[in-house]
Design a protein around this nucleic acid. Structure first.
Length: 379
DNA sequence: AACACGGGGGT
DNA sequence: ACCCCAGTGTT
């Protein structure tokens, strides 16, 4: 196999590795909790958490996760509900389900040891090409290229790569260039990989890049042309939609709430899949129909009380969810009665502390925290 | 090749 | 108030 650093047929590529590595030593991020370890479990966990999520958000989640489940064996053996609870609020919950599946695959199919090369790593659930390469580079010094959004930005600017990354052919071409730019020595891979990530996050930012602080400024074709902000080129058409969800928080006489597990069907494509939530209805009429079917309180007991809370806007990638929270306090006489739409196998009556220990979507968690003030427990 | 999936940051 | 950011799996 020819050395990837050899020049291409048409143009010689700039040698970016030496200045990047030198820059990372002095200006990169070198004190994150998942650095200075070659434990693939910790590197893997951090990389999954860092997908679509910023470092400052990940820090707390990472520490709690490692403390609760310090190695791949404990994660594989943990109940799925514990994994989801540890992920609660981080978003993209398919990451957590794949994380769990991946740990179990490492135990069952790889003897409890992570594969030591990127190609095998990429065959595991939730580990794609970039995450596999990052783990292999950081832990095993493999010469494997990453191409996440930060790196796409850095490389397209340095090379003035103007191909449309929405086209698979152009993306493939950039992958090939990323591999040709790798340092020759595997020992340089951890710092080189970290340098690309750090540069994209702190200097070569999407808007207003700080080119005067960039170690590649003398080689960067976009900087020389004065238009780094024009890269990367990606045509996209994101059509957004809106949807109303009516959330029914049933509250029994003891102040407990009914929470049900949402089905995990559809794998990655189901909102809040596998998490716990109150009853969800597409419209107010559906919710009202359910309430009308509730067991009626006796004359001696107070009637059920309904509290409609202000609408909460929950923004997803391409959908706005308008959440209409409704808290219904059930009369004591209805305790233990059969309630329509409630599926005993799927949920449970939970006290506040019990509920907050579950895997809850962030807006549901916030709402339930506010309930403690709005509807104090009456003893 | 298009789409779905949460949550947070900056201006 | 409205802009932006993003990797993997499914379809």
């Amino acid at each position: 196999m020819p050395a990837p650093s050899s020049s291409s047929a048409s143009a010689r590529l700039p040698a970016i590795a030496p200045p990047l590595i030198d820059w990372q030593v002095r200006h990169g991020r070198n004190h994150l909790p998942w650095q200075h370890t070659q434990d693939p479990y910790r590197v893997w966990l951090s990389e999954i958490m860092l997908q679509q999520t910023q470092v400052t958000t990940v820090l707390d989640y990472y520490q709690r996760f490692i403390q609760a489940l310090p190695d791949v064996a404990s994660l594989a053996a943990a109940p799925a509900d514990q994994v989801m609870a540890l992920w609660s609020g981080l978003g993209y919950y398919s990451r957590a389900r794949n994380l769990h599946r991946c740990a179990q695959a490492v135990m069952a199919e790889h003897g409890g040891q992570f594969p030591r090369n990127a190609a095998t790593l990429a065959s595991l659930p939730g580990i794609g090409r970039t995450t596999a390469a990052a783990i292999a580079a950081f832990c095993f010094q493999e010469r494997a290229a990453i191409l996440d959004a930060n790196v796409k930005r850095v490389l397209t600017r340095v090379l003035a790569f103007s191909g449309d990354l929405a086209q698979a052919q152009q993306e493939k071409a950039l992958w090939a260039l990323a591999e040709q730019l790798l340092p020759e020595a595997g020992a340089d891979m951890p710092r080189y990989t970290q340098a690309l990530m750090d540069l994209g996050a702190t200097v070569c930012t999407p808007r207003q890049p700080v080119c005067r602080q960039c170690p590649l400024q003398w080689q960067c074709r976009a900087q020389q042309a004065g238009n780094p902000q024009d890269y990367p080129v990606k045509t996209r058409k994101l059509r957004r939609s809106s949807q109303a969800w009516w959330l029914l928080f049933l509250r029994d006489a003891q102040g407990r709430y009914w929470l049900e597990r949402r089905p995990a069907q559809g794998g990655a494509n189901a909102i809040w899949a596998g998490l716990f939530s109150p009853l969800v209805y597409p419209g107010e009429a559906d919710l009202a129909r359910m309430l009308a079917a509730l067991p009626q309180a006796s004359q001696a007991s107070p009637a059920q009380q309904r509290h409609d809370l202000p609408v909460v806007l929950h923004v997803l990638t391409h959908r706005d969810l308008f959440l209409h929270p409704v808290v219904v306090q059930l009369a004591p006489a209805t305790d233990g009665c059969a309630v329509p739409d409630i599926h005993p196998a799927a949920g449970a009556w939970c006290t506040g502390p019990q509920a907050l220990a579950l895997g809850l979507p962030a807006p549901v968690r916030k709402l339930m925290l506010s309930f403690e003030e709005l509807f104090p427990l009456v003893k």
